[in-house]
Simulated assay, not measured.
Amino acid sequence: MDQDYMIELVSSKMRLIRMERGYTQEKMSEVLGISKKTLVQIEKERTLAGWAHVVAVCALFKNSEALQSVLGDEPLEVIETVAHRSIDRPKGKTMGGKVWWREMKAKGDFRLQQNLISQHYRILDSYDDLWFSTFEKRDAIERLDELAQE
């Protein structure tokens, strides 16, 4: 997954996200800082949202079912992973991956999971804290090995 693909995915869900929230086009365009005309063009799939607006949508509407249907339960984690190519630091508590995640491998106090929707990988510790996130399986396995040895 890359920025272009994320832009297409989120742009295609903008109308549903807006309707889920009960916003008019005026209100949604105000929240996102774009003109109503631009929002209409995005919703009619005549143009795509910009990267900054996709990031804003993921931050402001992270609990949207329409957004989660294409990105999984943590849209911000996906957007951050795409933006930085990976996340490699203790990041904080997660829900533990009970719904959107498949357990891939466990080693020591860490486990590797793959998101069923976005297909990205992450490493959690035994407290469900996020330590690493990437779209590259090889990188995830290497980091799991490193963390288990520390």
Rank of each mutant, 00 (worst) to 15 (best):
E8F: 06
L9S: 07
S11R: 05
S11T: 14
R15C: 07
R15F: 01
I17G: 07
R18L: 01
M19N: 13
M19Q: 11
M19R: 05
R21S: 08
R21L: 03
G22R: 01
G22L: 00
T24N: 11
Q25K: 11
E26Y: 06
K27G: 01
M28Y: 03
M28I: 03
S29Y: 05
S29K: 11
S29M: 03
E30N: 12
E30C: 02
E30G: 12
E30A: 15
V31A: 01
V31M: 05
G33Y: 02
G33D: 02
S35W: 00
S35D: 06
S35E: 03
K37T: 13
T38C: 02
V40P: 01
V40L: 10
I42H: 10
I42V: 15
E43D: 06
R46M: 11
T47W: 01
T47R: 08
T47V: 14
L48W: 10
A49I: 08
G50R: 13
W51K: 10
A52K: 12
H53Q: 14
V54I: 14
V54Q: 02
V55A: 09
A56I: 03
A56D: 14
V57D: 05
A59C: 08
L60Q: 12
K62Q: 13
K62L: 04
N63G: 09
N63H: 12
L67I: 10
L67C: 09
L67K: 09
Q68M: 14
Q68W: 04
V70M: 07
V70P: 05
L71T: 13
G72M: 10
D73P: 06
P75F: 07
E77S: 08
E77N: 08
V78T: 12
V82N: 05
A83S: 15
A83C: 04
H84F: 14
P90L: 12
P90I: 14
K91I: 07
K91N: 13
G92L: 10
T94A: 01
M95T: 11
V99P: 00
W101F: 08
W101R: 06
R102K: 14
E103W: 04
M104L: 14
M104S: 02
K105D: 15
K105N: 04
A106Y: 01
K107G: 00
F110I: 04
R111I: 05
R111D: 00
Q114P: 00
